[in-house]
Design a protein around this nucleic acid. Structure first.
Lengths: 166, 166
DNA sequence: GCCGAATATTTGTTGACACAATTAATGTTT
DNA sequence: AAACATTAATTGTGTCAACAAATATTCGGC
């Protein structure tokens, strides 16, 4: 019996091999992401907030179109998981002093979010623990296995392009 | 440049190969789970609610310890992703007529949740679309790739056993 | 049998999620 | 220039998530 099935105390098997793969993916993701969520939470951040700060740090260090900040609407597109309520998330980061809001000058509709020095400091503090956690969680995979892993993840996403069309 | 990096409009590379793997996992999971979330939502269910109903159906069909229902506290342990507020989720399912609550007789602290015939009917209705979506999303992987996929998922979870100790 | 500890679930509460509606600003057409 | 369409962000609102406290019941030691 596969580990997943035993872990879930599941009597019958899986309905299809694809379902088994999906559940394996979901289970693995749940376990790994829980570890990261705990780490971020210890520093007062949700995973989404952490990822947004990461994105904003990238732009602060490597300005785009002469800007070291990002429009709110563009932030969502830089994230792996969909964040539906960017405005309020930025609200919270602004309140925590980690992000500044800047009204655009060329287009007054646009609001730019820029990471503060406080936000940069928090990220710096988290850089090492995050790397360590990555090594802890997946460091036992060989380089060849990681390569395989990435290739399978990319392939698993491919048919999704057509599923995406509503 | 890897697809993931390009999709995220990410300028710099990844900090470590393990991080790249984790982000690939998270991105793939986000895409696939979004498709399933949409399907369940079309039938008035969240993914957690669907999974709970699946678990309860299993026990209804194959009773355990002479019981065709599960204690609330045990339901959480049968799920892939942690569900923190089982009580209220069961509340909602009871309200929707999909689950019944039964007070335990041997131990009055225990509350058993049992799927109703309405709940069974809803699941039956979803069985085929779910299988189809599985085939749609991962059906392009060969049998050998799925086998590899599962093996890597299991291996990725292994070191987690030690990470889990608080 | 009594009392304190442990257990199972529920309730209280705050914060986050997620979709729709609203507001302000810009772009396009007449 | 005015009217209409589109865009970007925000607000409104109900639902869900997540932790701590409360409540009821059972267990274990004396």
């Amino acid at each position: 019996m596969a580990t997943l099935q035993r872990d879930l105390n599941k009597k019958s098997g899986f309905d299809s091999p694809e379902q088994q793969a999906y559940l394996n993916l979901a289970y693995t993701h749940a376990k790994l992401s829980a570890a990261f969520a705990r780490l971020f939470k210890d520093h007062g951040l949700s995973e989404a907030a952490y990822n947004i700060l990461r994105v904003l740090r990238g732009v602060r260090k490597h300005p785009e179109n002469g800007r070291d900040a990002l429009p709110c609407g563009e932030i969502g597109g830089r994230l792996i998981a969909r964040v539906p309520d960017v405005t309020r998330l930025i609200d919270r980061l602004v309140k925590a002093g980690l992000v500044d809001r800047i009204r655009g000058e060329a287009d007054r509709r646009v609001v730019l979010a820029r990471i503060t020095t406080k936000g940069l400091a928090l990220l710096r503090k988290l850089d090492e623990p995050v790397l360590e956690l990555h090594a802890q969680t997946l460091g036992h995979l060989t380089r060849s296995e990681l390569k395989q892993f990435n290739a399978l993840m990319e392939k698993a996403r491919q048919i999704q392009a057509s599923t995406r069309s509503p």
